[in-house]
């Protein structure tokens, strides 16, 4: 039972940040596409802005790994 709960926690640790990241990247991506179309010189900063929400899912992934390692 405990192992199942840890497995579920690991799944949620990746899943929820993944959804949040997807939402944020969708918004930033469409705004970034519009900005780059109007001002091509902003493309570098747009790529950085698009990558920032990625940190959420990476941290979630790290937490999930740590949880799975608990299973032994």
């Amino acid at each position: 039972m405990e192992k199942a709960l840890i497995g579920l926690a690991a799944a949620l640790a990746v899943g929820i940040p993944a959804l949040a990241t997807a939402y944020a990247q969708a918004k930033i991506g469409s705004a970034g596409a519009a900005t780059v179309a109007e001002k091509p010189e902003t493309s570098a900063i747009m790529i950085i802005l698009e990558a920032i929400p990625e940190t959420m899912v990476i941290l979630g992934f790290v937490v999930a790994i740590m949880l799975i390692l608990q299973l032994g």
Binding site: I28, S30, A31, A33, A34, T35, E38
Partner: peptide, 16 residues
């Protein structure tokens, strides 16, 4: 609706 795309485009265009 496409506020994020529209607003970004218009904010960039407003520089003109």
């Amino acid at each position: 609706e496409n506020y994020s795309y529209l607003c970004a485009a218009l904010r960039a265009r407003a520089a003109r």
